[in-house]
């Protein structure tokens, strides 16, 4: 047990040193990289390791008779969490989310330090000591708080009320609900039941299982099967349509959506917000193929009321592409990202 706790303590110290180094730029921030595709779990895993490390550190300090007071343990852990979120995770997390996590952190730290009477007493003791002000130091601290706290609260209030010159926050609905049907080139498509005419098996019948089977998963990325190369001139059917869709994509779409379909095309950063990132699991992977068909055909100006503030400059592609071309380009987008269109069966 002691060996295990010593190991934990070592992990805790190393972790803290690493984080401190990253914060003060002593250690390059990419020393321990967040690995593409594994980042969400990596983050939780890292925080878990820190928790075990701190438990070990606490145990060791206790054994050495240098126990850290529960009050500082609680405060310290919360500060660590905020530092981790601010300096470890890249790209930077928006303040609103850090505030949410910070509040959850604060609540859970409170739950931890007050889970039983003994711990709660230990936690409260330094606060009560300052309030009682029995020693000179505590008296000084009490006066300091008396002066500093109103200044701090006043400062926050002033900052919150002060008019800002930056653009206001907008709650944007990225995926507004689609209409029941849409009319493109004179034909009405019911979004819940329409199907891509090009997602077909060798017999020419609509078959999503067939198209899904052409994709091999590796990590969180997707690769095509060796015999499923759409750029092979000999391929017919589904893979041929994927190739044709790819040609249309690179002629029309990649300027904004990027050649990796990640929303970072040549012109992407001229727009605010930047174009949709199809490789994100929250975009086309969450939507029916017909939803994409509607969005591509109608573009930004075709967004419904719910799509306020209509922050999209995508042209209505029905004015430039045929219906077949739209279906094919969508086929390519799904093939390239390795995602499957959403179905409801």
């Amino acid at each position: 047990m002691k060996a295990l706790m010593s190991l934990g303590a070592l992990v805790g110290v190393l972790g803290l040193l690493l984080l401190g180094g990253m914060i003060f730029d002593v250690v390059p921030s990419n020393t321990v990289r967040l690995i593409e595709g594994y980042m969400p779990m990596q983050m939780l895993f890292e925080v878990g390791c820190y928790v075990l490390g701190f438990a070990g550190l606490s145990y060791m300090l206790n054994a050495m008779g240098m126990a850290l007071p529960r009050f500082w343990q609680g405060i310290g852990f919360w500060v660590f969490l905020m530092m981790y979120l601010k300096f470890r995770v890249y790209p930077p997390i928006p303040f609103s989310v850090r505030a949410m996590y910070g509040t959850v952190g604060l609540v859970t730290v409170f739950m931890w330090v007050s889970a039983n009477e003994e711990d709660w007493k230990k936690f409260k003791q330094p606060i009560l000591n300052v309030l009682d002000a029995q020693t000179g130091m505590n008296r000084l601290l009490r006066y300091m708080y008396l002066v500093l706290l109103p200044i701090l609260i006043g400062g926050f209030s002033f900052n919150a009320m002060m008019p800002k010159s930056e653009e206001p926050i907008e709650l944007r609905t990225v995926h507004p609900a689609p209409p029941a049907s849409t009319k493109v080139h004179g034909k009405t498509y019911t979004l819940q039941t329409s199907q891509s005419p090009y997602r077909v098996n060798p017999e020419g019948k609509y078959d999503q299982e067939y198209s899904n089977a052409n994709i091999v998963e590796q990590g969180m990325g997707r690769l095509m099967k060796p015999n499923a190369n759409p750029w092979d001139e000999k391929n017919q059917g589904y893979l041929k349509y994927v190739r044709e869709g790819g040609e249309i994509f690179f002629q029309n779409c990649h300027f904004c959506h990027g050649d990796n379909l990640n929303g970072r095309g040549l012109h992407a950063f001229a727009f605010n917000p930047i174009p949709a990132n199809f490789t994100d699991p929250g975009t086309i992977a969450q939507l029916q193929e017909t939803f994409i068909f509607w969005r591509v055909a109608k573009g930004g100006i075709g967004l419904p009321n719910e799509g306020f503030p209509w922050a999209s400059v995508m042209p209505p592609w029905e004015q430039h592409l045929t219906v077949d071309e739209i279906w094919k380009v969508i086929l390519f987008e799904y093939w390239h990202t390795g995602y499957y269109p959403r179905t409801w069966d």
Binding site: E36, M39, P91, P92, I93, P94, F95, S96, V97, E166, E167, P168, I169, L171, R172, V174, G263, R264, F269, N272, P273, I274, A276, N277, D280, G282, T283
Partner: peptide, 16 residues
């Protein structure tokens, strides 16, 4: 929820 400045720093609507 983010300011346009945070959106630019993040490089897209979704955080990776």
């Amino acid at each position: 929820v983010m300011t346009p400045a945070e959106l630019k720093a993040m490089g897209g609507q979704q955080h990776p």
